[in-house]
C-alpha cells in the first residue's frame, strides 16, 4: 500500500477528517506532538504514529515543527503528505515545500489515489482538478472535505526525540490567549450554526440569534458586517477571513450572502435563510427560505422549536 504521512495537530474534527481522507488512499503514518493527537490518530485508523518529543517546541512559532516534519518527510519519503488547511498547517507545508523543493497544493477538498486533487477556487465558484506534476503529493486539506469516520486500531508508536535549533527560535510565542468559548459548541465543530448579519441591527438584538441557536443546540455565527459593526465578537465571523464551517444546518438571518460569506459556509448540508429582501443572493443557495422580517420570523420559529422539544 501507499505510504501516507499525516500531520495531526490536535484531537479536533478537522484532524479527524484529514486522517479519514488519508486512510482512503493508503497506509497512514501520523505525526503527533502530544498524546491527544496521537490517540486521535489511532482512533482514526493510522497504521503507525510518530510521537514527537521536543522540549519547548510550543514556545516557538511554526519553524521548529516545520523542521521536524521536513526531517520525517525526508526519512519516510511518503507518496502523499497531508496537513490540515489551517494557518499553521499551511505555514508548515510551505516550509516543507521550500526545503524539499517540492510543489504543494493548498485547500484541497478531495484527493484521489492517483494524486488528482479537487480545489474549490474563487470562493468556491469554480471547482478545479489539479495535481502535482513532480515530487510527492504535498497538500493541505480543507475543512469539510470528508466526513470523519473512526476506525480504531492499536497503532504502533515510534517515539521521535527532537531538539529546537537556535535558528528555529527566532519567533517566540510569548503568550497564548484563549477567549472563553462559553457553553455553546465551537463554531468550526458545530452541527448547527445560526448566524446573524447586518440585518440584526445591534449587539443587543443578537440575543435573538442566540435564542434560536440555543433552541437548536447550535453555535452562533456572524457576517463581517455584523462583526465590523461590533454586534458580535470577531471570532464568530463566518467566511473567507473568518471561520469556515460545514455544519449539517446553517441558518443565516439578516445576511445578504456576499461571496466572501458564502466562501465560509457553502458546503453546509442544509442552508436556511431569513431575509426581508426577496432578491438577496442568499436565497439562491437556500434549501428553505423565509422572505420576511427576522424580528417577526425568528421569535415565532424559536417558540415553535422550544415547544416541540
Amino acid at each position: 500500500m501507499t505510504d501516507i504521512l499525516v500531520y495531526v495537530p490536535d484531537s479536533g474534527k478537522h484532524a479527524a477528517e484529514v486522517l479519514t481522507l488519508a486512510r482512503s488512499l493508503g497506509d497512514v503514518s501520523a505525526i503527533a506532538f502530544d498524546d491527544a493527537a496521537a490517540s486521535l490518530a489511532s482512533e482514526y485508523g493510522a497504521a503507525k504514529v510518530y510521537r514527537v518529543n521536543a522540549a519547548g517546541i510550543d514556545d516557538y512559532f511554526v519553524a521548529p515543527k516545520a523542521t521536524v516534519l521536513t526531517d520525517l518527510a525526508r526519512q519516510v519519503s511518503p507518496s502523499v503528505f497531508l496537513l490540515p488547511s489551517t494557518d499553521e498547517g499551511k505555514a508548515l507545508a510551505a516550509r516543507v515545500a521550500v526545503v524539499l523543493d517540492n510543489g504543494l497544493l493548498t485547500d484541497v477538498t478531495g484527493l484521489e489515489t492517483d494524486g488528482t486533487a479537487r480545489q474549490d477556487i474563487f470562493a468556491g465558484a469554480i471547482i478545479a482538478k489539479s495535481k502535482l506534476a513532480k515530487g510527492f503529493t504535498l497538500a493541505t486539506v480543507a475543512t469539510g472535505a470528508t466526513a470523519a469516520a473512526p476506525a480504531p486500531a492499536e497503532a504502533p508508536v515510534e517515539t521521535v526525540e527532537a531538539t529546537v535549533s537556535e535558528d528555529d527560535q527566532r519567533v517566540k510565542v510569548a503568550e497564548s490567549i484563549d477567549e472563553p468559548a462559553g457553553d455553546r459548541p465551537g463554531l468550526a465543530e458545530a452541527d448547527v450554526v445560526v448566524s446573524g448579519g447586518r440585518g440584526v441591527g445591534s449587539a443587543d438584538d443578537f440575543a435573538l440569534i442566540e435564542r434560536v441557536a440555543d433552541a437548536l443546540g447550535g453555535a452562533v455565527g456572524a457576517s463581517r458586517a455584523a462583526t465590523d459593526a461590533g454586534y458580535y465578537p470577531h471570532k464568530f465571523q463566518v467566511g473567507q477571513t473568518g471561520t469556515t464551517v460545514s455544519p449539517q444546518l446553517y441558518l443565516a438571518a439578516g445576511i445578504s450572502g456576499a461571496i466572501q460569506h458564502r466562501a465560509g459556509m457553502q458546503t453546509s448540508r442544509v442552508i436556511v435563510a431569513v431575509n426581508k429582501d426577496a432578491d438577496a443572493p442568499i436565497f439562491g443557495m437556500a434549501d428553505f427560505g423565509v422572505v420576511g422580517d427576522l424580528f417577526q420570523v425568528l421569535p415565532q420559529a424559536a417558540e415553535e422549536i422550544e415547544k416541540r422539544k
Partner: peptide, 18 residues
Amino acid sequence: GQIVTDEGEGGRALAEFL
C-alpha cells in the same frame, strides 16, 4: 429550495421545515 413569504406564519413554517 423552497422560498416562502412571511404573512404571519413564516416562523412556524421554518420550524416545520427544521
